[in-house]
């Protein structure tokens, strides 16, 4: 298929998504819209981790840390000075924290940039480590971020966190950022820089021998991925309207890792599909955890059941289908038209 046709089809797909959102905004209830919003944010987070781990092979467990950075920076920028005055009851906020203000888009970008800055600072020492050690060290970093958030009440309001964060993150913002993330990561992965990332994942030694500055490229991938993790965290803060240090534990990273592994390490399509399916399942299983009443009947909720199901699912995927839904395969328009033609051919025959 011609490249121009594909560009047209991609633009049409985005337009269809836009129309769907416009329809959804008017016709779906608040709960359904919330799920759609979470899908967009989870896809952003999954894509960013997939770039780091799936494409570049850097086993990072620090996603929750970068999300926290993005969430806090964005929240501080969009909360009004009056709100912040009220919120900071442990200790008064620093002046610069109270006065800081920015429009939502700028605040989200700032959240992403702050996360990227942390990624550079953390990456320079840590990316020299291999596989599992890198995982544990980045996990340690995320925990340190959490402890810092608790112990810096003049910036983060300590353990209480923020409430009443303005809910700017509507369907259009979330999906807009989602499409932007998708575009950047697709372009990146399809370019020769993307090939270099994959080379590092496959064989670091050979990549060095091919003149690849492995450390620099790792840092690049890690920083870009963390930028989008920060963006995801920023959107999530505005979407949920509440953040506190307890929210950014390892469970959050686990959920993102779960989506990436289920979709397929190194498959963008997989991350999107798994992002949709798992977000819906996560919300759907929430029902199991809450008490239910059918007329006179009352069913007790089973707390913990959701994570039992998900951890079990992750184990099963790793054991029986390690490549996830998609392996390393990607969606392709050619593939669609071929299907279409085959069908048409059969009908004609």
């Amino acid at each position: 298929m011609h490249a121009k046709t594909k560009t047209m089809l991609n633009l049409m797909a985005v337009a269809v998504l836009g129309l769907f959102l416009w329809w959804a905004d008017d016709n779906l209830d608040g709960y359904q819209i919330q799920i759609l919003n979470l899908i967009a944010v989870n896809i952003i987070l999954a894509l960013s981790l997939n770039l780091i781990y799936g494409f570049t092979g850097l086993f990072s467990l620090g996603h929750a840390g970068f999300m926290a950075v993005g969430a806090y920076v964005c929240s501080v920028l969009i909360l009004s000075p009056e709100q912040k005055e009220m919120l900071f009851i442990l200790e008064p906020a620093f002046d610069w924290v109270r006065e800081a203000q920015a429009p939502f888009f700028v605040a989200v970008v700032a959240g992403g940039l702050a996360a990227a800055l942390f990624a550079v600072l953390v990456g320079i020492p840590l990316l020299r480590l291999g596989d599992d050690y890198l995982g544990m060290a980045t996990l340690g970093f995320a925990e340190i971020i959490r402890v810092l958030a608790i112990n810096a009440p003049r910036v983060t309001n300590g353990a209480l966190g923020f409430k009443g964060i303005p809910d700017y993150a509507n369907l259009y913002w979330n999906f807009g950022w989602c499409v932007l993330t998708l575009y950047v990561i697709i372009r990146l992965v399809a370019s020769n820089s993307g090939n270099v990332f994959k080379a590092i994942r496959d064989d670091e030694t050979a990549a060095k021998a091919m003149g690849v500055d492995v450390f620099r490229q790792k840092l690049l991938s890690f920083t870009i991925g963390s930028f989008f993790a920060g963006v995801g965290g920023a959107l999530l803060a505005s979407l949920l309207a509440t953040i506190d240090p307890k929210m950014f534990t390892f469970v959050l990273t686990f959920n993102v890792l779960m989506i990436v592994v289920t979709g397929g390490l190194g498959s963008i399509t997989g991350s999107i599909l798994a992002g949709i399916v798992i977000t819906i399942l996560l919300e759907w299983l929430r029902i199991v955890e809450n008490p239910l009443t059918f007329g006179d009947w009352e069913l007790q909720g089973i707390p913990g059941m959701r994570m039992v199901v998900f951890s079990l699912a992750l184990i099963c995927i790793i054991l029986f289908r390690r490549e996830g839904f998609m392996g390393k395969r990607e969606f392709n328009w050619d593939w669609v038209t071929r299907r279409f033609r085959n069908k048409a051919g059969r009908h004609a025959g």
């Binding site: 950047v184 372009r187 990146l188 399809a190 370019s191 020769n192 820089s193 090939n195 270099v196 994959k198 080379a199 994942r201 496959d202 064989d203 030694t205 050979a206 990549a207 021998a209 091919m210 003149g211 690849v212 690049l220 190194g266 390393k328």
Partner: peptide
């Protein structure tokens, strides 16, 4: 030591990366 998951062409292209002049962000911006 090839890059086993990549295509034959990609393997050679990775070798070319060293002499490339444009960077990742230029690729992202098309």
């Amino acid at each position: 030591r090839l890059f086993g998951n990549e295509t034959v062409l990609q393997n050679v292209m990775i070798g070319c990366h060293l002499r490339q002049k444009t960077g990742w962000w230029q690729a992202v911006l098309s």
